[in-house]
Design a protein around this nucleic acid. Structure first.
Lengths: 340, 340
DNA sequence: CTGAAAGCGCTAACAC
DNA sequence: GTGTTAGCGCTTTCAG
């Protein structure tokens, strides 16, 4: 059998083989309109024989749809190592999980410099993707407005730094802070401190605010705070500082599990027992919470569900472009384990 | 100022405004061929004024290039939660890091069922991406041959289950196993056990083989093995089994850090000290190695560098399709910390 | 060095 | 219910 080098088959080829017009083939491929069952059969055979696959570029040139969305991670100052943060892994999991059911694929983009931010906007303006899912933490992030200005359908994970008509999903971070405070109070802590996330991150501010407010309402007007950077190392350092200034501390709220883990380490190194001497509450309920010894009592953020919702909101707004912005706020939940 | 609703500008619009032909505009946009400097200036202004951005679909319809590649994660049985595994985060980081310098974007795909595998091939055949980066662990994975059969430029992370003409990057896993054995022997362990990864994963087999061979060469003809699944929980369970059957064990090699972490937990729970009573060596040198207490002595796999290389190989083979398959094997390295 | 013209492969009115 | 006919916006010979 002689094999011939043949170009990939097109609609035209299928149509010719099936003895019908391109339009008809297109119709059966896309399942649009009614097509005579017999013809459908013929066409399907022809498709089978030729090994035809529709060309994506040609299709999206006319439909103006690509079937992909950009998943933009606007890392802090960090580069690609954000992907090592369990948080982003969970976001990705949630997004992929939802999108795959709709045949939509996420393209991963990092926006950590002005240059890459411009690239993202460019990418979307070129129509390389139908919309953007933006996971940003920094309040000052400029991407939301740029995307909005470019008319790109966008959904944010976390509310925008400045109010603007854009859809987003978010967690009630303040409620989360309150949950942590309640736990520490319930445990009878008399001297509590907090390890916050970067304070230019809205979520960090909110968690801290909620925590402080609840503590204040419980008779603790002042809570010492050490700022961390959402990494274990920064939590370690922050706990160290807290310990120096307030050696009497017997309760700590860390704004994420990674930092809580770092804090627990320091405590243990100092011969303090957790939770007997110092109770520690984390935030997120991601992998480190379980890996940590003792396992972390933490405020659960349903990241996967939130990410999936974000994707869902984008897909629906792609279907109905006139739709007004939507916001969905999730409630945190206290998960009690061993550390507090 | 009255704002008009205007369609996004096309080459045509720019050409008209600049008083030149579309071809000329195309040339300056793409920097192909020489164009009169004055005209270039004019054209650039026109582009500026119109806010023109080339349409991706139209361009790739003719160039047959998309500027994206598929990053396919062929998860074990698992679904989207593979993204929580630090290994994939590192792969992603390495890939993104390299690709961004070349203006190429990865689209994330999960291939965990036959259906999704077909989708992946379909996606590539449609020309939705220029090539595939396949991260697969299972030896029986069918995607490599399917992709090869479809003529899709592909690079694998890990050698294929069956020999075939495809490019890949890999680690010398056996050497890694030997490194671990050498450490345990050096420490004077007299009864060692191993926690392997899933045995249908080539890397697991190789790590174990290398470990066993080296142990045998050092006078240990038999090494008890408990099979795990690369998760902390499975490592925990495996260590438990090992301990029941061989309570005298004083050295353990776990085929990845997550399992090593689980193993350490069990050991500690049983009142055994690490490394004094039992030495533990992990594999990968990923985040859990550092988070673990004691910190893990482990065999380093340079995942990010390997992933970057994988992307590089793909990009070069995209540029020269005639190029023969390439393989790049990385060497592991022992990282000594506290656990062994 | 620049313009004219021919498609890339597909969908979507619009007739029949 | 099916075919005809325009394009979608761009690159690229091929002349000039």
């Amino acid at each position: 059998m002689v094999k011939r080098i043949m170009a990939t088959p097109t609609l035209e080829d299928v149509a010719r083989l099936a003895g019908v017009s391109r339009a008809t083939v297109s119709r059966v491929v896309n399942g649009t309109r009614n097509v005579d069952p017999d013809l459908q059969e013929t066409v399907r055979n022809a498709i089978e024989q030729t090994g035809y696959t529709p060309n994506h570029a040609a299709r999206s040139l006319v439909t103006r749809r690509t079937g992909t969305v950009a998943l933009v991670i606007s890392g802090a100052g960090g580069g690609s190592d954000v992907f090592v943060d369990p948080f982003f892994g969970r976001v990705t999991a949630g997004v992929v999980d939802f999108l795959r059911t709709r045949g939509v694929h996420p393209v991963l983009m990092l926006a950590d410099t002005d240059r890459t931010r411009v690239d993202v906007v460019e990418f979307l303006r070129q129509g390389s993707a139908d919309g953007a899912l933006l996971v940003t933490t920094h309040a000052a992030e400029s991407l939301p407005e740029r995307l909005l200005a470019a008319g790109v359908p966008t959904v944010l994970y976390a509310r925008p730094g400045r109010p603007m008509p854009v859809s987003y999903v978010d967690l009630d971070h303040q409620a989360g802070g309150r949950l942590a405070a309640a736990r520490l109070v319930e445990l009878g802590c008399t001297s509590v401190g907090a390890i916050s996330g970067p304070l230019d991150v809205l979520a960090s501010q909110d968690r801290l605010t909620g925590f402080r407010d609840a503590m204040a309402r419980n008779g603790f007007p002042y809570v010492p705070v050490a700022e961390g950077g959402f990494t274990a190392a920064s939590g370690h350092a922050a706990m160290g500082r807290l310990l120096v200034e307030h050696p009497e501390v017997d309760g700590v709220f860390a704004a994420n599990d990674l930092m809580a883990q770092g804090a627990v380490d320091v405590l243990l190194e100092h011969g303090l027992r957790v939770p007997q001497d110092v109770a520690v509450v984390g935030f997120d309920d991601s992998a480190p919470a379980l890996a940590c010894r003792p396992q972390l009592t933490t405020v659960r953020q349903p990241v996967e569900a939130m990410a999936a919702k974000m994707a869902e909101v984008l897909i629906t707004s792609l279907e109905d472009p006139e739709q007004r912005p939507i916001s969905v706020i999730f409630e945190p939940e206290l998960v009690i384990r061993a550390s507090a």
